[in-house]
Structure formats: C-alpha cells, structure tokens
C-alpha cells in the first residue's frame, strides 16, 4: 500500500507538469495584450522595457521554466520563511531567511504576487464549499440508506424524484430563484455575501450564518442529489448479500444489521465518490460565487480571465489541476485502505 502510494505520488509529478505545460502553451495563444491600456504616447522602447518587466520578453519555453521556478522554488521558500518568522506553530525556530527578494509570479491586474491574492481569497471559497460539502454529505447519506432499506416505498419514490430534480436543476437557476424568494420576497437572507464581515460575538455570528445559508444550500443541493443516489445504490447492493442474512439469523437487532454491517460496507464505494467529487465542487463554486458575489477563487478566475491576467489564470488552473490529481490519489488510496479485498501491486 505504501509503495503504491509513493508510486502514484511520483507519477503525479509528470502528470501535473504536462498539464501545466499544455495550459501555459494554450495561454500563449491568447489574443489580448497586457499593455493595451498603456497610452500610445509612451515611446516604443519604454513599452519594450515594460514588456520585459512583465516577463514577456523571453521565448515561451523560458517563460514557462521561470514560472515553474517561481512557483516551486521561490514560493516554498517564502512559505518556510513565513512559518519560521510569524506562525505560532514553528515561530520559535530561528528565521530561515531563504527568500532574498527575487521576482515572484506577479498578477498583471494588481501587480502584486498571485499567491498572496489566492491565499486571501481561499478562506471564503473553503468556508462556503467545505460547509456545503459537509451539509450535503450529512443530508444525503441517511436519505440514501433509508430509501434503499425501504425500496419502492413512498419515501424512496419521493427521494428519487427529489434527487433527480436536484441533479437536473442547474445552480445558476436555483441561485437566482432562492435570491428572489428569500432575499427579495421574504427579506430573510442577504443576497450578497459580505466577505469583510468579522465574527466577534453572537450577533455577528448570526449575520455570518445568514449570509452563508443560500450559497451553501445551492451547492449542497447538487451534492446531496449525487451522493444520495450513490448511497442508495451501494446500500441496495449490500442488503442482498449473504452476510446480511447471516447477521439477521444470528438474531442481531435490525438497527445493528443496517446501521453497522450494511452501512460500513456500503460506505466503501461512497467514500471514494466523496473524495473524487471535491475538485468538481470547486468548479461548481465558480458559478455559485458569481451569483452570490462571494470573492473566492472561482470569482477570481472569472475576473482574471476577462481581464486577460494570464499569470493569475495559469496559476489558478494549475491549482485546480493539483486538487484533482491529489483527490484522485486520495480516493484510490482510501479505497485500498477501506476494502481489504482490493490489492494494488
């Protein structure tokens, strides 16, 4: 298992490098010019120097190499410096001071380091997406188990219908619909997510909770629909197995048969589906963040795309790719750990 994990980790490196190379070369074809906003009175030699300063003077391969260097050598250095200087966990260590002021990956929009902006935006996305994921899982698993246990009952039929509907209604429709109903019609919830809001006491916590309800519910609806279907299918498969009959014949109470024996076995495929779904939910968050004006990384990607901010787009796409590769790996490893019948060698 350990060798398998290590081999997969090593294999992930060329995959990620290849993906980043493809995306980088794709972005080279971009028609926009980052200096389009510069006045025409600026003389051409100054313009050339400005291009140089943005790192555009070099051939694409050199640019790509520099981007790799900046992301994988400079940024970790800065992180280690920060960890030994300011963080409470490792702050007692002597300051490493590895980073000595080289140029980092700079956003063309703000002229500030891309990763600093990403780190500012990440908590908003993680809060909304992460909470939606947890809520979705907590709702969907009991629904899936119960509808499988009472297959073809009214609850099962209704549950199947609701999951189908949740599966089919796109988030860019549910979002505005919820805003019209709950913000405009009833006036219960704010339609815009205020990221400057700080939670200091109970009242501000309630405000935070209220502004999170709608974006979380929109994302959670899709997650719930998807996972309830998987859980139902997995539970149905396991309920027909011989070991369930054996457990019942031993005289175990029904709650133990279903709640322990069946659920533990049905969770094996579902856990991998849950791990595999994490990256796609970040993709789905792009739309939800646009609707509710959450300034997370999805919204950052959209604005960077429209502003032709290639370093930002490149880095964000790469982060999404890393998420996918890492969670694919986690899913496979979890599958092997949970199910002793699976052997990777």
């Amino acid at each position: 298992m350990l060798t398998y994990t290590i081999r997969r980790l090593i294999l992930a490196v060329p995959t990620l490098i290849f993906i980043s190379f493809v995306v980088f070369m794709l972005l080279q074809l971009a028609p926009g010019d980052p200096l389009a906003q510069v006045p025409l009175t600026v003389p051409p030699e100054v313009r050339a120097q400005m291009r140089e300063a943005l790192g555009l003077g070099e051939p694409p391969l050199v640019q790509y190499g520099k981007w790799l260097w900046q992301l994988f050598v400079l940024e970790p250095q800065i992180f280690v410096d920060w960890a030994t200087r300011e963080s409470w966990l490792l702050g007692w260590l002597p300051d490493t001071a590895l980073y000595s002021g080289e140029l980092r990956v700079i956003s063309w929009q703000t002229r500030s380091p891309v990763l600093d902006i990403v780190l500012q935006r990440l908590p908003q996305t993680l809060w909304v997406v992460g909470l939606a994921y947890v809520v979705g899982i907590l709702i969907s698993l009991p629904i899936g188990i119960y509808s499988a246990y009472r297959q073809y009952s009214v609850f099962d039929q209704a549950g199947t219908f609701v999951t189908m509907v949740g599966f089919s209604i796109p988030p860019f429709f549910t979002g505005p619909l919820l805003i019209v109903i709950f913000s405009v019609g009833l006036g219960w919830l704010p339609s815009i997510y205020d990221t400057t809001h700080r939670v200091t006491d109970w009242d501000s916590f309630v405000v935070q909770l209220r502004q999170m309800i709608m974006p979380v519910m929109v994302l959670a609806l899709q997650i719930t629909a998807q996972f309830a279907r998987y859980m139902r299918a997995a539970t149905l498969d396991n309920l027909r197995q011989d070991y369930v009959r054996t457990a019942r014949a031993k005289g175990l109470p029904e709650a133990v048969v279903v709640g322990v024996h069946v659920v533990r076995n049905s969770m094996i495929p579902v856990v991998t589906v849950i791990a595999l779904g994490v990256p796609s939910i970040f993709g789905g968050a792009i739309i939800t963040e646009t609707i509710f004006k959450v300034n997370g990384i999805g919204q950052l990607l959209i604005t960077a795309l429209f502003a032709n901010d290639l370093p930002m787009v490149m880095t964000l796409t790469f982060i999404f790719a890393v998420l996918i590769v890492v969670f694919n790996l986690i899913a496979d490893v979890l599958y092997g750990l949970l199910d002793p019948r699976i052997r990777y060698d």
Binding site: T15, V23, L27, L29, A30, I286, I302, T317, I324
Partner: peptide, 20 residues
Amino acid sequence: TDLFLALPILPLLLVAVTLF
C-alpha cells in the same frame, strides 16, 4: 484518459472559449 480526467474542466472551458 487519466490525463484528461485530471484536467480542470470548467476553468479550462472558460480559458479555451475566451482564447479562441
């Protein structure tokens, strides 16, 4: 196939559409 599955689809769609 694995490589394509590892591509971030929606961001890449957005990139491709705006570029081409």
